[in-house]
Write a protein that binds this DNA or RNA. Sequence first.
RNA 1: GGCCCCAUCGUCUAGCGGCCUAGGACGUCAGGUUCUCAUCCUGAAAAUCACGAGUUCAAAUCUCGUUGGGGUCACCA
Length: 463
Amino acid sequence: MVRTRIPPSPTGQDIHVGNLYTALMNWAQARKNNGKFIIRIEDTDRTRFQEGAEEKILSSIKAFGLDYDEGPDIGGPFAPYRQSERLPLYKKYAEELIEKGAAYYCFCTKERLDEVRAQQQKEKKTPRYDKYCLTHGTNAKERIEKGESYVVRLNVLPDKKLWFKDLIRGQIIVNSNEVDDQVLLKSDGYPTYHLGVVVDDHLMEITHIIRAEEWISSTPKHIILYEAFGWEQPIFAHMPILRNPDKSKLSKRKNPVWASWYLEQGFLPEAMLNYLALLGWSHPEEKEIFSLEEFVRLFDLKDIKPVGPIFDLVKLTWMNQQYIQNLSEEELKTRIVAFSKRAQEFSDTLFAGLLPLLKTRMETLKDFDTLTEVFVAPSIPESVTEQEKQIAQDLQKAFEKLDAWEATTLFTVMKEILLQYKVRMPVLYVLLTGKPKGLPLPETITLLGKEKTLARLQQLITL
RNA sequence: GGCCCCAUCGUCUAGCGGCCUAGGACGUCAGGUUCUCAUCCUGAAAAUCACGAGUUCAAAUCUCGUUGGGGUCACCA
């Protein structure tokens, strides 16, 4: 049974797109193999903890359609799925490690740690804990009973060859001399990421660890833990890191990074996932647009390229446009109504006329409001030229005479005027809609109605 | 800086020893359709496959080195 997971930490305002990306891959891996996709909240950093972040993260994941089988809000056979509710577990395993000699208590103060680090940096050495408490720690139990603050550190043995297999990058080997005696259990009793993931991934029977590349360098620590516990290693796959245009790690300073931002901007979740799927992976037939279902069927972790791709808003926008265009009119309407407050004021008949015009012109759902401004809050030019005034008058006259208020006849009328005055279409656009371009004019004023159109022209004439 | 990862058009990528004088997509430019704007269609420019050695009859594809980029070095995840 394939079991994958994502471990979001509630320290930001929402899930990061980079995490949405790895979430997609974890989800796909589970779905492809009829496995389970799990969400485990890693809320062990109490200083960066943010109220409400967990709810936001979960709702975003749901909004993108990545359904999960086990998680903090729905439970599951390995509950609880929130690390803060599993504290005794980590303590127990930390103690087991100490008994085995794979970890030790450390009472060093922040001051001493800083000092040691500064000294090492001065000597141009990589900062490492100097194992002071391992070599000087004789009466740890007593000191703890006296109430002294302590942490538990990983005891890394020197000159060991540490290695693991990565599905995307092959074998990765590191010498244990490169690994620091990481803190596993913090003085507040919470585990660090390293203890937390290893214990929970094992306990929750996770088979594939699909996470971002930035974790490669700490994987050797996890390998030491798996070995110390005598646990079987899961399969690792380190996804490429999404980047800013300057190739640095995707960050909020240089890019919108919160998943819900994209939804708020009117991107469709399926377009976003399709775009994300194409980063580091490509369709065997080089198709660009494909369903999630198709992705799940064709996707294979082994095909992921290790290169960190730049997140390109322009291509995402194109993809979104394609998705909008491929939506049925009914579906498009549903999406628009859910997205735009203004849309609720539109009648069914108006919508029916608008939808086909909108389809090829909307890049995001946000465009609905700007494209339909004429129907709600048309802007009147501050002034018009004499010629424009005359055009308005002619239009008024011609329109008034019309019995049938429909696009083709309106267009005939407008064409005559265009010819007569030797002007181009945008002139009429500004007059009739207040904007130099927009949805097709005859259709627009058909939908606007005779009354409103004539009223507007009258307004222009009297300017 | 140490360690680790990576390297094909501006961007996302195809390519897994001969089919490559390198294909597709986005973007850009030009043209067509057209009532503006779009859509749609056609075409063009765009990568000496980072560089240098080697292996081979043959290398974008394999090996090594160089350079460049990225990640990581916390009681954060």
